[in-house]
Design a protein around this nucleic acid. Sequence first.
DNA 1: ACCCAGGACTGAT
DNA 2: ATCAGTCATGGG
Length: 297
Amino acid sequence: MTARAEPPQISLSLAPRGLDLDATLTSGQAFSWKRTTDGRWRGWIDGRPCLVWRHDEVLRAVGPDLTHEAVTRYFGLDGPLREIFASFPDDPWLAQAREFSPGLRVLRQDPWETLCNFICSALKQIVQIAQINAELRRALGEPVGPELHAFPTAARLAHATEAQLRACKLGFRARHLFVAARQIAQGEVSLEQIATMRTFEAREALMRIQGVGEKVANCVLLFAYGRLEAFPIDVWVERVLRQLYFKGSTRVKLARMADFSRDHFGPHGGYAQQFLFHWIRNDPKALAAAKPAKKAR
DNA sequence: ACCCAGGACTGAT
DNA sequence: ATCAGTCATGGG
């Protein structure tokens, strides 16, 4: 404890009925959280810095202007979890994935930052996306404390130079992010309106943004707008589907896997997708099960 | 040295 | 409509 006066903070607690912070915050949906040396998590909820940790059955979060409602919503603990899980198919792979990390939750994050994160995600590893997020904050974000920068607004990114963006290790994604920022700043696409649209129209609107294809649109719908039916298929989920649900067939096309996923995993398929994604990337048994057949050499 | 990463865009069929 | 080529950069 420092002797200095603390900034005004609100402390709160809730019984989350199971929330695995480590799994949730490292599962490739959020990219601005860092684990502290004592196992807590520093990050942002609704644009406000905070510190989050779990003690037994209680989740604690501390940060200026933080509310119980905001934390509950962010961690997706206000949804009908029991109904969601009950809607899952009786499926041995999904069952294993859920068993691997039962406390994994789908977050509901800020749409703008989530959009940027996934525009930057193309052909990047999760750690690198987090690094880009940190660079953008440091270079262009509003300072809100020592070594603490908010995520830059669309207007700010729109007025940056493409060279500034490239300096944040964006590579070829710099142009995408730059154009996207201008589109949002000029109101060509409204992230607020998207919240009111049906998922299909919301997806089409998102895909009008530069750097946003079907996969990124689905990530934003799932991880920011709470559209649990959105089912992103990245290289990992494609691997799971192909190897475990299509018997390793090499010719099944992406569109068919998307159709299958919608039918098979149901109205909250995106949630199932997140269990599968985390499972295949972290459970050695899953990796072994989904390993492609050895190519003849 | 080589392959891969939570892909999207472009231009040619 | 489908399909290969291309786009930077860092990790394993």
